[in-house]
Computed example of a mutant assay.
Amino acid sequence: MRRGTGPVSDHDDAGNAIVEFLAVTVLLLIPVLYLVLLLGRLQAATFAADGAAGEAGRAYTEASTIDVGSARAVAAVALALRDQGFEDVDPASSLKLECSSVPCLQPGSDVAATVRFAVRLPFVPSFVSSVVPLEIPVRGDAVAPVDQFRGR
């Protein structure tokens, strides 16, 4: 007992630390963890789109014909997207190739490759789509030169 204060227990706040820890965890830690998860996924998507566009352009310019080049470019996009965990993205529909000359693959010309797809936000339910976007678009661009001495 303390002098002059009456019977007061030293353990009146027992259990408050647990409640405070849970409140801080829910209010701060969970949103920060979600943000880290989301930013990691977006970084992987950006890396995949840039890599896929570069490899698609190179694969297209090294091909002997336009048809072979298109098939190689789609395969390169599929490989780059799969490497970063985006197996659900259709490589053929996400790839766009543009040539700087007609016909394509003329020596000294350029081929521009663009890869676009959408990254779905993890753990966001579809009923909040009117308030929060459910997908974030990602785009990667690259220009690959056709060898100037091609076919000589």
Rank of each mutant, 00 (worst) to 15 (best):
Ala71Thr: 08
Gly54Ile: 06
Ser130Ile: 07
Ser93Phe: 02
Pro122Asp: 10
Tyr34Phe: 14
Gly140Lys: 01
Val146Ser: 02
Pro133Phe: 04
Gly140Trp: 00
Arg152Phe: 11
Ser101Gln: 13
Val119Ser: 01
Ala44Tyr: 01
Ala142Tyr: 01
Asp12Met: 15
Leu134Tyr: 09
Leu97Ala: 04
Val74Arg: 01
Ile136Asn: 04
Ala113Glu: 00
Ser101Tyr: 03
Leu134Glu: 15
Ala71Met: 04
Ala45Val: 03
Glu87Asp: 15
Thr46Ile: 00
Gly15Arg: 09
Leu79Asp: 07
Ser126Ala: 13
Met1Pro: 00
Phe21Asn: 15
Arg139Asp: 04
Asp88Ser: 14
Val89His: 02
Arg116Tyr: 01
Ser100Gln: 11
Glu87Gln: 11
Arg116Ser: 09
Asp10Thr: 15
Gly54His: 03
Gln148Ser: 12
Ser64Thr: 04
Ser101Met: 14
Ala23Gln: 14
Ser130Pro: 10
Pro107Trp: 08
Ser64Ala: 09
Gly54Gln: 11
Ile66Asn: 00
Val74Glu: 09
Val68Phe: 00
Val132Asn: 03
Ile66Lys: 04
Arg152Leu: 11
Gly85Val: 08
Leu35Asp: 13
Val26Lys: 03
Ser129Leu: 08
Leu22Met: 14
Phe47Lys: 01
Gly15Asn: 15
Ile30Arg: 05
Leu28Val: 15
Val89Glu: 05
Ala59His: 02
Tyr34Val: 10
Glu98Pro: 00
Gly108His: 13
Pro145Gly: 13
Leu28Phe: 15
Ala113Leu: 02
Leu105Asn: 00
Asp12Phe: 15
Asn16Gly: 15
Ala76Leu: 10
Pro145Met: 06
Ala56Val: 07
Phe47His: 06
Pro107Ile: 09
Leu33Phe: 11
Arg139Ala: 07
Leu105Gln: 08
